[in-house]
Computed example of a mutant assay.
Amino acid sequence: MPIYHFHVDNGEFIPDANGVELLDLAAAQIEAVRAAGEMINEAKQSFWNHQTPWIMHVTDGESRLLFTLQFGAKIPSGDAIYVPRSENRPAT
């Protein structure tokens, strides 16, 4: 089974030296989303206070970059109204 490495930069670079054996790329994508959710949950309030996005680079056993996840939280600095964009309506 191939090995996938999940390297994280959340303000501190955390390399994944060991990696995880997974069936295929689809399984690595599922694991990346699961691990990202777990990290956000474990971070508690510090995730919300973080000013820059967290990044997860997923590589194979040969250190080839397969995909990158980027996730973060944005809190408006004042009153904000959310207006969803319609596919038929151009952005203003």
Rank of each mutant, 00 (worst) to 15 (best):
F71T: 00
N18D: 05
E38L: 13
V83N: 15
Y4R: 00
G78P: 00
Q45N: 06
G19S: 09
H57G: 08
E62F: 03
A35E: 00
Q45I: 05
F47H: 02
A26H: 12
G78Q: 04
D24S: 15
N49C: 06
I30F: 09
I14F: 11
A27D: 06
W48D: 03
N18A: 11
Y82R: 14
D24M: 15
M56D: 03
L22N: 02
I14T: 13
Y82W: 15
K74N: 10
I14K: 07
E21G: 14
A80C: 14
R64G: 06
P90Y: 10
A91Q: 14
S77L: 10
Y82V: 14
E38H: 09
G11H: 05
D79M: 04
I14V: 14
S77K: 08
V58L: 08
F47R: 01
G61L: 05
G11A: 11
L22R: 02
H50A: 12
A36R: 04
A36Q: 07
D16G: 11
I3T: 14
V83G: 15
L66D: 03
K44N: 13
A91Y: 14
T52L: 12
V8S: 01
K74I: 03
T52I: 08
H57V: 08
A91T: 15
A28H: 01
F13R: 11
M1S: 02
F13I: 14
N88A: 12
A35G: 01
A36Y: 01
P90L: 13
E42P: 00
L69V: 07
R89A: 14
L23F: 03
T59G: 07
K44T: 09
I75F: 05
Y4L: 02
P15K: 11
R85A: 13
A28V: 10
A35S: 10
W54S: 02
F13H: 11
I55A: 00
G11D: 11
P53G: 05
H57L: 09
E62S: 10
N49D: 11
V33I: 12
F71M: 04
Q51V: 04
R34N: 08
K44D: 14
A27E: 08
H7K: 08
I14L: 15
A26G: 08
A27T: 04
R85D: 13
R89S: 14
V58H: 00
L23T: 01
A35P: 00
E21N: 13
G61Y: 09
P15Y: 09
S77C: 05
N88T: 11
Y82N: 13
W48M: 06
N88M: 06
A27Q: 06
S77A: 12
